[in-house]
Simulated scan of single mutants.
Amino acid sequence: MKYDFDTIVPRRGTSSYKWDTSEEENTLPMWVADMDFRTAPDIIEALQERVMHGVFGYTKVPDTYYDAVVRWFGNRHRWQVDSRWIVYTSGVVPALSAIIKALTEPGDKVIVQTPAYNCFYSSIRNNGCELSANKLIYRDGRYTIDFDDLEAKTVNPKAKILLLCNPHNPVGRVWTPEELQRIGDICLRNKVFVVADEIHCELTYNGHNYTPFASLSEHFQQNSVTCISPSKAFNLAGLQIANIIAADEELRRCIDHAININEVCDVNPFGVIATIAAYNKGGRWLDALRKYLWKNYEFLCHFFTERLPQYHVLPLEGTYLVWVDCRVSGIGSDDMTRQLQEQQHLMVNSGTMYGPGGEGFIRLNIACPRTLLADGLERIARVLK
């Protein structure tokens, strides 16, 4: 079956955070991490059937939901999850906040490999904890992990958690099994618990295969929890659904208690229905999406090579978020994003919002029809040329 990713779906005026934050009609948003594609037809059909029922009361999550999650990760990623390990909640960010609340005391340190997803910082801060930045090494146009620094950070007795982003947002790395093994060994040795944000796990390219951190060993599985959601891969963020996978029963009880304290224990019926449809019937659509996104990335790389060769586009191993090194311009990230919006009505993300190591970079969301991507790139060229 052929899927359509080229048709522009008008989103302005739909209370879209991405499109309606700016009131200017000619603004093109390439910032917030949701896609401008309709979701998989099987998901739409399942949601339409549920809408026609017409009654939208409180939802009891059925066994078929857990079955769909277990089957998907077993078949797609060779990770055998027990349905009893799954704790549902309203999103990955609420999940991260609840886990930090469950596993730390105010004043504890949470390690983050920076630059990293900006909501990591607010989740740490809101729970009274302190950031411990394990800054990624940027060398020869690629990011790697500073394992010596990670060891030093985990030795600190106040360090309780490593927030692992796998695949990594915003730098686009898909951590290899070898890298994950070293991370896990260091954290085990120094009694630091791993919280793996793997929300972008379905979006990988060209042999860069996603490895669930917890799948590497029984020890890692017991010393970690994993946060997943179909929201990024199937464009379902507004339906507010995510899962925490925790193998340890006592840990699950602590997390479940924190989720209830944070009042994010209820989910809506549409998130449940969409997750079941996505994991049971969405595989072929997802495969087609990944091919389209990769073609978008190739289009962007060719554009930069031809028109803006002085700027380095980072290799995209995973996510649909492209990290661009703009330091040669001498313009700070905040000034650059401001110029793009003021002069060309283009919204992109400044690297500074991703913490230490982000200055001088911008993040571009390429999950849109190629005509919109081409428009955005032309706007960038008019400012950065």
Rank of each mutant, 00 (worst) to 15 (best):
V192S: 12
K153A: 15
I228A: 06
N156V: 13
E179T: 14
K158C: 07
E198N: 04
V195F: 02
S229Y: 15
L180Y: 08
T204M: 02
Y210I: 13
I145M: 14
P177K: 07
K191H: 15
P230V: 02
G172A: 00
Y143K: 03
P157M: 13
N209W: 14
A116H: 04
W175V: 10
L164M: 01
E178W: 13
R125M: 09
V225I: 00
E198H: 08
F213C: 06
C165T: 10
N206C: 09
E151F: 04
N126L: 06
D197A: 02
P170Y: 01
W175H: 03
E130T: 12
S231M: 13
V225L: 07
A214Y: 04
A116V: 03
D149N: 04
G184Y: 10
Q221E: 15
S229E: 01
I199L: 01
V195R: 06
H208W: 06
E198Q: 10
L180E: 10
K158S: 06
H208C: 05
S132I: 11
S229G: 11
N127E: 06
A133N: 08
E178R: 12
Y121F: 02
G128F: 00
S122Q: 06
N209D: 12
D146M: 02
I137L: 01
R182E: 06
E130I: 14
I228D: 11
K158E: 03
T144N: 08
L188I: 09
N209G: 13
C119W: 12
Y210F: 05
K160Y: 08
L216E: 11
V192H: 10
I145L: 12
I228Q: 00
C201R: 01
N127Q: 02
I186R: 06
Y210R: 08
G207D: 07
A152T: 14
C119F: 13
F213R: 04
G184M: 12
I199S: 07
L188W: 03
T144D: 11
P212V: 01
S224A: 04
L162T: 04
F147D: 14
I161V: 13
F147M: 10
E202H: 02
